[in-house]
Simulated assay, not measured.
Amino acid sequence: MNKIMEDMRREEFLSVFTKELFNKIDEMIEEKKIRMENVRMLIKRVAYWIELKNAWYYSFEFSELSQRIREMIVEEDWKKEKKDEKLLIDLCKWCLSVSFSTSSKLISICLPCIMKAASNKEENEEAKEEVEMALLALNGYGYCEISEELYLNEIKDIIQHHQEHHNLTRLAYQSAWQFLMNRFDKDKNLEAVIVNELHFVREAIKELEELTRNVNWKKEKEEERRGKEAKEEIVILRWFDIIMENISQCKLRNEEFIRFIGSIVELYRAAKDIHRGICGECIDFLRFAARSEPVKNDDLLKGGAIDVVFEELYQPTLEDENVRYCLDTVLAISGRLEGKTDDEMEEVKRKEMNRKVFEKMEEEGHEDTIASFYGTIDFQNANFHLMLSLNISDYFVNI
């Protein structure tokens, strides 16, 4: 069942796991026609699929079975004696994994249970699976109002322990970061923790580089490959959710950030012929990097960002969104090169960088592509890049 569900496409999954199905299961529980243990196994797999595929899913939340589980959590928590902690933890994991509107009361019960399960440092496979499920269950609740006392020390310990002992699965480690980065929207004081204590950028680079090496980038026909993404590819896409959150919200930058550019360029080239979704995320990252003040033009040039932008524009087929990202990246770099300064030494550096960039463009034969930007540059400079012509990608292919 696990393997069948993991291979399910979204349409297949939604057609099977409907609200009506869960209502029927609830009836069967009431009539004692199905054991709760079997229900627990099923919901566990449903929750895993939702998190693995990063999917929005509401069928379970509005079912009668969901309401039953919420009531069971409160009832089990109220028990003074013979409280079944394993059952309570399982119920809480399901509740957080497959619900989007959990009450503050339930969160106050569930979060400590989940953190306790996620903090288990046993090395056996069963423990690792339970820890992974616990961390996956946290992902949707980074944006809720939660006191730091309920999570911060625990999540820091989980991440730091893994950095030293490598005890988590890739998906579990990524999920720990996902939860913490989601919290950043509510708790801005987490910035120093994320950047300087836990070294997010260093860790993200290491994970992406290892995942890039581990994926089988074998080229297949698109129709044969559709819906068959390897688990590693899914984890890469999930990392980009966290990376873009970090770039857009964290203002602190250190020397670790510069290495990001080279690792993203390597990932783009590995995925270029097979996974256009990952390529789009790479281009979007480079766009943000080009517009990030602490990142220097020399870093973009040496890291290969400029090469990747033009490699993307030379693809036989293009996505409109990627074209807009490429345009925005080039304009950001161009704006930096045009920005004159009164500081003589800085002005010398700027002119030297201008020379390097344009020499590189000539060496690579990019003059025609540069010239083609003038048809759309007014849109881009006016921040209307989302309003570019719908067939802008065809325009660049023809060029």
Results as ranks from 00 to 15, higher is better:
332 A>D: 07
341 T>G: 00
313 L>G: 06
326 C>P: 05
324 R>D: 09
310 F>M: 09
329 T>C: 13
334 S>D: 15
318 L>F: 10
345 M>C: 04
316 P>M: 00
344 E>K: 03
330 V>M: 15
338 E>Q: 11
331 L>F: 15
338 E>W: 07
353 M>Y: 08
352 E>R: 06
335 G>Q: 03
343 D>S: 00
316 P>Y: 06
313 L>I: 10
316 P>V: 04
333 I>H: 04
315 Q>K: 14
353 M>L: 09
348 V>L: 05
348 V>Y: 02
350 R>V: 00
325 Y>H: 11
320 D>E: 11
333 I>P: 05
317 T>S: 14
351 K>R: 15
348 V>S: 02
328 D>H: 07
332 A>N: 11
345 M>E: 15
316 P>N: 01
320 D>N: 11
321 E>P: 00
339 G>A: 15
347 E>N: 03
346 E>C: 06
325 Y>S: 11
337 L>A: 04
318 L>N: 09
335 G>V: 01
317 T>K: 11
337 L>F: 02
310 F>W: 12
335 G>K: 08
353 M>N: 05
344 E>W: 08
334 S>W: 11
331 L>R: 10
326 C>T: 10
333 I>L: 15
336 R>S: 08
332 A>H: 06
352 E>P: 00
314 Y>I: 09
351 K>D: 02
329 T>H: 06
337 L>M: 11
319 E>A: 14
324 R>V: 14
345 M>Y: 04
350 R>P: 08
322 N>G: 12
336 R>Y: 09
312 E>C: 12
337 L>H: 00
341 T>P: 03
341 T>D: 03
316 P>H: 03
334 S>C: 09
346 E>K: 15
316 P>S: 04
309 V>Q: 00
337 L>V: 10
326 C>V: 08
321 E>V: 13
355 R>Q: 14
340 K>N: 12
316 P>W: 00
311 E>K: 04
317 T>D: 03
313 L>V: 09
319 E>V: 15
347 E>P: 02
322 N>S: 12
348 V>D: 08
352 E>F: 02
339 G>P: 00
339 G>H: 08
328 D>V: 13
310 F>R: 08
318 L>E: 06
335 G>H: 10
334 S>F: 09
320 D>S: 11
337 L>C: 06
343 D>L: 05
350 R>L: 03
331 L>I: 10
355 R>D: 15
316 P>L: 04
313 L>D: 04
320 D>I: 07
321 E>W: 12
320 D>Q: 11
352 E>T: 10
319 E>G: 07
312 E>N: 13
332 A>L: 07
347 E>A: 02
338 E>G: 09
338 E>R: 10
312 E>R: 05
312 E>G: 08
352 E>C: 08
336 R>V: 07
342 D>C: 05
340 K>I: 00
328 D>I: 06
348 V>F: 04
344 E>P: 15
346 E>V: 01
